[in-house]
């Protein structure tokens, strides 16, 4: 091989096996999937995509996917942001409890957790019993197979992915910054808004992207918690391949889902760089 203009470090070759492996069994198949979506028997065509997008049912599916993902992300952020601070402040056994509660569910499979939420959310489930005995609900309510139930279950599974990135930036914040601001007369609200919040934004962004990406792609959780009548892009992909045996529909839906997921990742990358520059 001829030496290139910029001599490549021999150490760089160590990256080759992994990169080649992923290029071959992961990147290439994805490119072929995208190509299949826009290539008909007579060459380039947008016909499958156009017919997919002309069906109002599919727009409903896209809307469902985005709505559920947005709700799950908001719930995770509302619970995860304060919890990340508690984790950073904690020490001793409180820290052990918090860490165990975050990491243990992370190491238990999603089928197990979704199954447990099926039990919790039934009409005669413990959530219903608890709410009735507390007097919040007048009669038992079934949350299983509702949007609320799905959001609750998904937020439960994805919450650690919100807490950990935020925790990783919170624990690096220099407490002297806020003290200095306080010495200079800044009110607590002002200190939070102008010092703590901007410093935690990169972690928040990472967590939001993580949870949102996981939520638009989830398959097992909606299958168990909301059922077939409510379709998201991912469940539609799964159904068309595994039950309907409609590969054309499955491929097109998968393409739409893939484009959406890539857009989220790329968009967040741009945002993160902008955050980095303004900081």
């Amino acid at each position: 091989m001829k030496p290139r203009r910029e001599r490549i470090d021999p150490v760089a070759w160590l990256a080759l096996p992994a990169v080649a492996y992923l290029a071959l069994v992961y990147a290439l198949p994805l490119i072929m999937l995208l190509a299949r979506g826009v290539m008909g028997p007579k060459g380039f065509t947008i016909e499958p995509l156009a017919s997919f997008l002309s069906d109002p049912f599919n727009w409903q599916v896209i809307a469902n996917t985005l709505k559920i993902a947005a709700l799950v992300t908001v719930v995770c952020l509302l619970i995860g942001y304060p919890t990340a601070f508690a984790l950073a402040w904690s020490s001793g056994w409180t820290q052990v409890v918090l860490l165990a509660a975050i990491i243990l569910p992370l190491s238990v499979g999603v089928v197990v957790k979704a199954f447990a939420w099926q039990i919790v959310l039934r009409r005669d489930g413990i959530l219903s019993q608890l709410m009735v005995s507390l007097g919040v609900w007048d009669e038992p309510v079934r949350l299983l197979f509702t949007e609320t139930g799905l959001v609750l279950g998904a937020a439960n599974v994805f919450l650690p992915f919100m807490i950990l990135p935020i925790y990783s930036v919170v624990r690096l914040i220099d407490p002297r910054l806020a003290e200095a601001a306080a010495t200079l007369g800044a009110t607590p609200v002002y200190r939070f808004r102008r010092i703590v919040l901007p410093l935690t934004l990169p972690g928040v962004l990472a967590g939001v992207v993580f949870v949102f990406s996981l939520s638009i792609a989830m398959y097992v959780i909606p299958s168990l918690l909301i059922g077939d009548r409510y379709q998201t892009l991912a469940t539609l992909v799964g159904r068309s391949f595994l039950f309907m045996r409609n590969e054309q529909l499955g491929s097109t839906t998968a393409t739409v889902l893939l484009v959406l997921a890539v857009a989220v990742v790329v968009g967040s990358g741009v945002l993160a760089r902008r955050l980095g520059r303004s900081a």
Partner: peptide
Amino acid sequence: AISTFLVSPLMLPGLVIGIAMLQAFRD
């Protein structure tokens, strides 16, 4: 670019990766 590429399977929908692989392996 390389490190993003290697970590990217975490961020993309598993079902889509699975289908792409299924079709490619079959080919």
